[in-house]
Design a protein around this nucleic acid. Structure first.
Lengths: 270, 270
DNA sequence: TTGCTCCTCACGTCACGTGAGGTGGC
DNA sequence: TTGCTCCTCACGTCACGTGAGGTGGC
């Protein structure tokens, strides 16, 4: 039996960490002495070794809880490990992209790109449009998860560039987004209840064209909002992004050539 | 002038983030309306763009504060960016090592290695030893930062395997460590006051030999402590690790062949 | 008795997210 | 008046670290 200080030495876990693991119930000492001292044994040591391993692999406490509960034979552990491996691999990929981004900004070229773009603003009427759509809460990056489902329902009846509707009036990490694919003819969505088929009404809106990556698209929004302000126009939601030219489902294309139309509806007197 | 909701849309920062940045004084709106509404202008927008960039590169708020304060021309920014790039590169390296570690544990070979090692325990007397040393607080991984300094002072007078003393009686992230290089003859440390030259007294101690990487060295400590417990021996600090065979300063060597002696002093009746 | 090792609160961290409760202008 | 947008607290997060104040056995 080891007192907490001794156990700390042989496990390389701080006393504070051990007390925390006790509280979190992932490593409770096998017994308590009369003076409330935590007393650890060899079985606790084995468990601690596993926990140290998992923490070094950046498992959270609650993940470790899961592992320990469902941990029967080695196979289960291997499954968790390979999952975590994939996760870390993803992180590395992201960080490599970060480095790329830094490199981009080390050459001041890109900074200029968006700034120097001058947006031509138009006021247009958009006719009513039939479309199949899915509305979800999440990031605009999740579009890929849903768009395939819509095209499956639409089949050959797609009619024009797909667009998104953004229902929030501030920026949110978890945004309220509707992905839409314009359609012609009758659409059968009975197989996929999550896909809505409906008509979006006519709107009057301010619009502009953004050419290039989506990363700088906020500048286009600013241009539209600035215009509205100078004209005393009141904007409303949902704003619309029409993807005249964007990443296809198969080919990625060159982001610098993406063409996106930003559409912000004008509030009309009731 | 933009109200916070509008500004949120054009900067892709949440309203909550904007209020937080205001509180933290990294992005305070250029004015407040009478009703206390935050009002942002174009200059604030530029600043926000920079902040978004830096946050995406994982700069902390206080780092951003630094950047903004010392940010005069582009050159300063470039310096910060290349620093951060190096930092991320380091992180990627670490994560790649994590993946390697996972791979190692996916083959169950390594798990066995340390467990199956059986440690021969000895009780030995260690004679007084003259040594040059540096005592510091930090991780054992920081040894490399100090050992060179010691050898510079010692010059040709090194005499035997270097060792570390560990003064804590529990495991700590920031440990109290003394790095020692045994010496012969007179050592002149007048040029480097941080290097102490002294004699370490005779000790009676339990010792064992650990062969292999330092990652599993805690198992050797356990073996020694277990022995002490069965014999009713009371251990004390500082424990000693003698690096009979370890990474040289130039060649890294094969960690599987490292030979380390673990020495835990016995408390002798006063 | 003093020192030592342990104990249990309670509070801090970092960058916001999540409410609660309230105000001012259309 | 109702709805809308904004405001200011206050509390939660995650895995511990940092004290404060106290106990029990040598």
């Amino acid at each position: 039996m080891y007192k907490i200080g001794e156990f700390s030495k042989i496990t390389n876990l701080t006393v504070k960490a051990l007390r925390y693991y006790d509280e979190q119930k992932i490593l409770q000492p096998s017994c308590r002495a009369e003076n409330e001292y935590r007393m650890y044994d060899n079985k606790d040591f084995e468990k601690a070794q596993l926990i140290v391993l998992l923490r070094s692999l950046e498992f959270s406490i609650s993940e470790i809880k899961d592992v320990l509960e469902s941990y029967e034979d080695m196979e289960d552990l291997q499954y968790f490990l390979s999952e975590k491996k994939a996760f870390i691999a993803k992180k590395i990929k992201k960080e490599k992209e970060l480095i790329k981004a830094i490199d981009n900004h080390l050459l001041p070229e890109k900074n200029m790109e968006a700034k120097s773009m001058d947006y031509k603003i138009e006021i247009k009427e958009f006719e009513p449009v039939n479309a199949a759509s899915i509305r979800y809460k999440g990031s605009y990056k999740d579009v890929g998860e849903y768009i395939g489902t819509i095209y499956k329902v639409v089949k050959g009846n797609a009619d024009g560039a797909p667009f998104n509707l953004y229902y929030d009036d501030e920026f949110k990490e978890v945004a309220d987004i509707e992905i839409c694919v314009p359609t012609k003819g009758k659409i059968d969505n009975s197989a996929n209840a999550e896909v809505a088929v409906k008509q979006f009404p006519r709107i009057k809106a301010i619009s502009t064209i953004h050419i290039g990556t989506y990363e700088t698209i906020n500048v286009a929004y600013k241009a539209v909002m600035d215009y509205a302000k100078t004209q005393g126009i009141k904007c409303t939601v949902p704003s619309r992004e029409i993807y005249h030219k964007g990443p296809g489902m198969v080919f990625r294309g060159n982001p610098k050539k993406y063409v996106t139309e930003i559409v912000i509806p004008i509030e009309e007197g009731v």
